[in-house]
Structure formats: C-alpha cells, structure tokens
C-alpha cells in the first residue's frame, strides 16, 4: 500500500491556480523529497495531505484515509512539522510534550523526553526563549515522538545546526528502513540528495518529475562539448535527445538530456567540429535546475539557428 496516493489534484485560490493536475504515489518505507521553487505549491500540497483544505479536483489518500473526510485518522498517523512551527510560547519544552501526550498513545512522553535529550534541549526552558533552530528541534521531537506511519516535514532542517541536521537526516534513513515513510519538502538539495529515495519536482504548480532518485540520476546525463566553429549549427544527432536544459558559455555547450547513450557519444566524438565531448551523471541540484528552468522551443530554435553568440558573452538559454 502506498503511504500517499494523489490523483490529478488541482487547487485554486480565487482566480490564481496553485496546483495543476498533480498525481503521485509515495510508497511506504521511503524518504520522499518534494522539491520546488518558492511558490511552487509544495506547502499547499502538504496542507492538502493533512486535510487543511479541499482540492478543486482529483482524489487523495493518506495512509489509506481521505484527509478531508477523516482528518482525525490521518492526524493520528501522520507527524507533521510545518515550515514555521508555532507552539505555545508560554509553555516550557516539557509542558509542550506533556500537553501533546494527551492526544497520542502511551509512550509518547518518554520518547519525546528522549528526543529532547538527544537534541540537547533544556527541558524547563520556555518556548519563547528558544532560538529558531531550537524551536525546530522541539517541533521535530513532537512530530517523531509517537513514531508516526508517515512523517510530513515542510522545510524541516531550516534553522538546525549542521550536526543536528546531519543527525536528523540520518534518522530519516533509519526511519524509512524501519518501514515508516518520510515525506519532506526542502530547499537543502544537497542534504535531500543524501537521504531521499524518491524525488518529485514541482514547478509552478505542475509536477515535473516523480521518480526514484537513483533512477532519475541514471536516466539523465549532462552532455558537454565545445565547438571549434561556433557559427556552424549543432550536430543533427542531438535532435534525438529529450533535452531538459541547455547552456552555452562561449563555444562550450552543456545539455541535460535523457537517452544519452554510448552510440550518441561516439557519434559526437567523430564530429570534427566538436571536441572535448563528455557525458556525466548530474547531481540533484543540476537536475532540479534542469527541471525548473526548462527550455522553450523558441529558445531552442533560436539558438540552433543562430550563427553563434559573441564569445565573450555567457548566455543562459533558458
């Protein structure tokens, strides 16, 4: 059973459309990373997962429950940390835990105390006296203390110090290994890359890609080459590629594309106008940029038909 099943959901606020026909499934026991620029619709999607609003179309299932109709069941199974967790400022750390323990199964408080100890937080400090990072730690402890089936984290590592961040991310891997699911959105792409099993990239409300990270990395290559005579057109073999992103710096091109195979590389290397032809596996950040800054047809055609730019200029095709 998938922890999360989203089928064709859309969301509009007034006339502004925030999500367009988003569909994805999050398998159980994985760390699922949702990436996207500011305003891409990540928080809207996450809040929808918790039943905070109805979508304008499509269906959604979290841990087998409809979050709109059965929000309580969802919240009993989902640990949620928002991007700006606001707890009662007048409570102490231990009081927050005690208060929350009233609504969760037995064992919550001891686990919470253990997490607070691990995070090296003072039990009797009031929330109002905590720094942003310390508040984030308290929110994480509250969300993880009842060992939820699904952990939904909206920018969870924002404000955390490097040590805690590393520790926290490693604990996410352990959690996934134990059969629980972690659904997180973050801008810390390098860190996500270390822990995420699955990645989804949301751009302007549209889902660009959903795939296991390893599979995504293996299917996409970063092809780079230089041209001796930049006035000439690009080789015709490149038309076979599903190009995601392309940049040109002087006479050097970098193309992110699917279906880059050895035969293509061999063909390009035989082209006398090209030299220094190589293909590398992109990292997640490059993939993210590739998906969130897609090429437009007009740009492509203009570049391909151009006689070549001024060598002193560096032009981002997108």
């Amino acid at each position: 059973m998938n922890a999360i099943e989203i089928k064709g959901v859309s969301k509009r606020f007034g006339k502004r459309s925030v999500l367009h026909d988003v569909s994805l499934n999050v398998p159980t026991g994985v760390v699922f990373a949702l990436l996207g620029e500011n305003g891409a619709g990540k928080s809207t999607l996450i809040r929808g997962l918790l039943g905070y609003h109805r979508f304008n179309g499509g269906s959604i299932s979290v841990c087998g429950y409809d979050p709109v109709r059965q929000p309580l069941e969802v919240r009993r199974r989902v640990g949620y940390v928002s991007d700006a967790p606001s707890m009662y400022e007048w409570m102490t750390i231990s009081q927050v835990g005690w208060y929350a323990s009233g609504f969760y199964p037995d064992g919550f408080l001891s686990r919470y105390d253990q997490l607070i100890f691990e995070f090296q937080l003072p039990q009797e400090a009031k929330i109002r006296d905590l720094s942003k990072g310390m508040r984030a730690k308290v929110a994480l402890a509250l969300a993880m203390a009842f060992d939820p089936q699904l952990l939904v984290l909206d920018e969870p590592t924002s404000g955390l110090d490097p040590l805690v961040r590393r520790s926290f991310l490693e604990s996410m891997i352990d959690r996934a290994a134990a059969g629980q699911t972690v659904f997180l959105s973050s801008h810390q792409i390098h860190e996500v890359e270390r822990v995420a099993d699955w990645v989804a990239i949301l751009h302007q409300g549209k889902l660009q890609v959903v795939a296991p990270l390893d599979e995504l990395k293996s299917s996409i290559s970063m092809l780079s080459f230089s041209m001796r005579d930049s006035l000439l057109a690009l080789p015709a073999e490149l038309d076979r590629l599903e190009r995601l992103h392309q940049t040109q710096t002087g006479r050097t091109f970098q193309i992110m594309a699917r279906n880059v195979d050895e035969s293509l590389l061999a063909s390009l290397r035989l082209n006398s106008n090209l030299f220094d032809v190589k293909a590398i596996r992109p990292n997640l950040e490059e993939l993210y940029i590739g998906f969130t800054q897609p090429m437009r047809e007009t740009d492509l055609s203009r570049k391909e038909s151009s006689l070549g730019p001024n060598p002193s200029e560096s032009t981002d095709v997108a």
Partner: peptide, 22 residues
C-alpha cells in the same frame, strides 16, 4: 507504536490545562 489512544479523560485534562493556562 500501536495506535491505542489514551483514556480520553487525560486528553480533557491536557486541553483544559492548556486553555486555563492560556
């Protein structure tokens, strides 16, 4: 962790404590 919620009285205690403290 098994999903067996606590006695609802404890939830009431927590809620009332929070509201009155607030």
């Amino acid at each position: 962790m098994e999903l067996t919620t606590r006695a609802s009285s404890f939830a009431w205690v927590c809620l009332m404590w929070k509201e009155l403290q607030q």
